Amino acid sequence: MDTYKLILNGKTLKGETTTEAVDAATAEKVFKHAANEHGVHGHWTYDPETKTFTVTE
């Protein structure tokens, strides 16, 4: 398992979190669910070198 990071750049919610996942696709599902639960919808990017997802509203 690897550690993946999410950076939230929402209009009303900003922050960072991490998750352990077997691959980037699994981490993305976890992060998108969490972002949706917090009402953050926007443009997603992924940097494979740093294993970091970013969502920007």
Rank of each mutant, 00 (worst) to 15 (best):
K11C: 15
G15E: 10
P48L: 06
K29N: 08
G39S: 06
K29S: 09
T56N: 08
A34I: 15
V40E: 03
K51D: 00
T56L: 05
K11H: 13
D23V: 02
Y46Q: 00
T26M: 11
A25V: 10
P48Y: 07
E49W: 11
W44T: 01
V55C: 05
T26H: 13
Y46T: 00
K14T: 10
K32V: 08
T18G: 04
A34D: 06
E57G: 04
E49K: 11
F31W: 02
A24S: 08
K14W: 12
H33A: 15
T19C: 15
V55D: 00
T19K: 04
D2Q: 14
Y4C: 03
V30Y: 14
E16N: 05
G10T: 14
V40N: 03
F31Q: 00
T26C: 07
G42H: 02
T45F: 08
I7N: 04
Y46C: 01
V40G: 02
L6W: 04
A24V: 11
L8A: 04
L13K: 09
P48C: 06
A21R: 02
A35R: 02
T52M: 03
E57L: 06
A24R: 11
F53K: 00
N36D: 12
K51N: 05
T45E: 11
T50L: 07
A35I: 09
K5S: 05
L6N: 01
T17Q: 13
K32Q: 09
T19R: 04
T52C: 05
D23P: 00
D47E: 09
T12S: 11
K5T: 14
A21E: 04
T56Q: 07
D47Y: 06
Y46I: 01
M1I: 10
F53Y: 05
T54N: 04
L13F: 15
K5G: 03
D23T: 05
T3R: 09
D2Y: 14
G10I: 09
T12G: 09
E49G: 11
K14S: 10
Y4G: 02
E49M: 12
G10D: 03
E37N: 10
V40K: 03
T52G: 01
A25I: 10
G10P: 03
D2V: 12
K14M: 10
A21P: 00
V55T: 02
V22C: 11
D47K: 04
K11V: 14
G15Y: 15
T54D: 03
E57R: 03
K11S: 11
E16T: 11
H43C: 13
T45C: 08
D23Q: 02
T17F: 15
V55F: 04
T56A: 05
I7L: 06
K32P: 00
E16G: 06
K32E: 05
T18V: 09
T52E: 04
A34P: 02
T50H: 07
D47G: 02
L8R: 01
A27L: 01
F31Y: 02
T50S: 10
L13I: 14
L8D: 01
A25K: 10
A35P: 01
T56Y: 08
H38Y: 15
K51S: 03
N9V: 13
F31I: 01
T19A: 07
T45P: 00
L13R: 07
E28Y: 15
V40L: 10
L8W: 14
A24C: 14
E49L: 13
E20I: 14
E28K: 09
P48N: 07
N9K: 10
V30H: 11
I7P: 00
N9W: 12
T12Q: 10
K29D: 07
A34S: 08
Y46S: 00
L6A: 03
T26Q: 11
V22Q: 11
L13S: 09
V40C: 05
I7R: 05
T18H: 09
T50Q: 06
E16W: 14
E20N: 10
A25T: 09
L8K: 01
P48G: 06
K32R: 15
Y4P: 01
V30A: 10
G15M: 15
T12H: 14
H41I: 13
H41N: 11
H38D: 05
T52N: 02
